[in-house]
Amino acid sequence: MQIQKSFKDTSGNGTLYLVPTPIGNMQDMTFRAVDTLKTVDLIASEDTRNTKKLLNYFEIDKPQESFHEHNASVKIPGMIEKLHDGLSIAQVSDAGLPSISDPGHDLVKVAIEENIPVVALPGASAGITALIASGISPQPHIFYGFLPRKKNQQIAFFQEKKSYPESQIFYESPFRVADTLGNMLEVYGDRQINLVRELTKIYEEYRRGTISEVLASIEEFPIKGECLIIVDGSDGLEKAESDFDSLSIKEEIESYIEDGDKTNAAIKKTAKRRQLTRQDVYKEYHEIED
């Protein structure tokens, strides 16, 4: 059990600040984030060259130390020592919230183990920013980040996730996005998605539609720039397609009910999957004759 007093720490340790940076538009930097970078003793940067552009833009003159996935294990002990000496450190990634797709999480874990305060600042997040403008249900949702690159691994990943009811958020390279959507279409079926590129930048674009529609648009207008994919959650019909084809209408409805659906919801699902009217399925289930 540990209780952290973020701004009333009396241990003498420094503080590890997790500072979000813009995902494209420099004006998305918060006042608090700028002030924090101006007051810390050291900035731990995923790429010091990228962070230097940010620091120059906001006229911040603070020392940086390279901190990325290839040197994290070597760098963490020294940073923890500095924090124990009372120095404050701001950890930043190249874009967005740190500690998600970079080694910041490892530093956070060790800092917590060492009773060093860890303070997160709110700010830009590509996945959530795209989600709320997608038109796809924002809650519940699951953020997955980058997908496996190899086709067989990606197919296996989608097979595991296809029945999840939550909206899903993925990052993907513009060079792989067409292949990824093809694999997704094969496993998920033709769901509603958003393909978002160049978020917060001048060429920001949302392509909203079914997977097949978005794939067709890529063939006509190829994707350039950083992109992410928002996918509608499962409505439960994927399971029906694979498991219920040999069942009668009544057996299919009862199977949905066993899985937790209410009777009316199960009837509606069955009607949709079989492309029948809800009234006909209702009569069949309740054995009502015309």
Rank of each mutant, 00 (worst) to 15 (best):
residue 33 A to H: 01
residue 38 K to A: 09
residue 207 R to E: 09
residue 231 V to M: 10
residue 234 S to W: 02
residue 239 K to W: 13
residue 168 Q to I: 10
residue 113 E to A: 15
residue 268 K to V: 00
residue 285 Y to Q: 10
residue 226 E to I: 09
residue 248 S to N: 08
residue 286 H to A: 02
residue 255 S to T: 15
residue 175 F to T: 11
residue 149 R to Y: 01
residue 5 K to A: 13
residue 136 I to M: 04
residue 266 A to Q: 06
residue 73 S to V: 07
residue 67 F to D: 07
residue 190 D to K: 06
residue 144 Y to L: 03
residue 251 E to S: 12
residue 9 D to I: 05
residue 255 S to V: 05
residue 57 Y to W: 12
residue 197 R to Y: 07
residue 224 K to W: 05
residue 286 H to V: 01
residue 281 V to G: 04
residue 272 K to I: 14
residue 230 I to A: 02
residue 279 Q to M: 06
residue 201 K to Q: 09
residue 266 A to W: 04
residue 57 Y to K: 14
residue 124 A to F: 06
residue 104 G to A: 08
residue 129 T to N: 12
residue 185 L to I: 02
residue 101 S to T: 05
residue 136 I to H: 03
residue 190 D to V: 01
residue 21 T to S: 11
residue 17 Y to E: 08
residue 162 K to P: 01
residue 257 I to K: 14
residue 123 G to K: 04
residue 70 H to F: 15
residue 264 N to M: 11
residue 277 T to V: 00
residue 4 Q to V: 12
residue 206 Y to R: 08
residue 236 G to C: 05
residue 190 D to R: 04
residue 177 V to Y: 03
residue 166 E to I: 01
residue 205 E to L: 12
residue 51 T to G: 02
residue 104 G to C: 08
residue 13 N to G: 04
residue 234 S to K: 01
residue 14 G to L: 03
residue 84 H to Q: 13
residue 216 A to V: 01
residue 183 N to A: 14
residue 98 P to N: 07
residue 108 V to Y: 10
residue 22 P to A: 06
residue 182 G to S: 14
residue 268 K to Q: 11
residue 109 K to T: 13
residue 39 T to G: 00
residue 55 L to Y: 04
residue 233 G to I: 06
residue 146 F to P: 00
residue 240 A to V: 11
residue 7 F to Q: 07
residue 273 R to M: 13
residue 134 S to H: 08
residue 147 L to W: 00
residue 249 I to F: 09
residue 149 R to I: 06
residue 178 A to G: 08
residue 125 S to D: 06
residue 179 D to E: 15
residue 63 P to S: 05
residue 104 G to E: 04
residue 183 N to H: 15
residue 61 D to M: 06
residue 143 F to A: 11
residue 274 R to A: 09
residue 197 R to E: 10
residue 197 R to D: 07
residue 166 E to K: 08
residue 1 M to T: 10
residue 12 G to Q: 06
residue 91 Q to T: 10
residue 178 A to S: 15
residue 89 I to E: 01
residue 147 L to S: 00
residue 102 D to V: 04
residue 60 I to V: 08
residue 23 I to W: 08
residue 221 F to I: 13
residue 40 V to H: 07
residue 83 L to I: 10
residue 157 F to W: 15
residue 245 D to H: 13
residue 190 D to P: 03
residue 176 R to I: 05
residue 35 D to C: 05
residue 268 K to W: 00
residue 147 L to E: 02
residue 224 K to P: 02
residue 23 I to F: 11
residue 48 T to N: 01
residue 46 E to H: 00
residue 288 I to N: 02
residue 10 T to D: 14
residue 39 T to D: 14
residue 246 S to Y: 11
residue 236 G to L: 07
residue 221 F to L: 12
residue 175 F to W: 07
residue 271 A to L: 03
residue 63 P to H: 04
residue 19 V to R: 05
residue 62 K to T: 11
residue 161 K to N: 12
residue 147 L to V: 03
residue 202 I to R: 09
residue 221 F to A: 13
residue 144 Y to F: 14
residue 213 E to R: 08
residue 255 S to L: 12
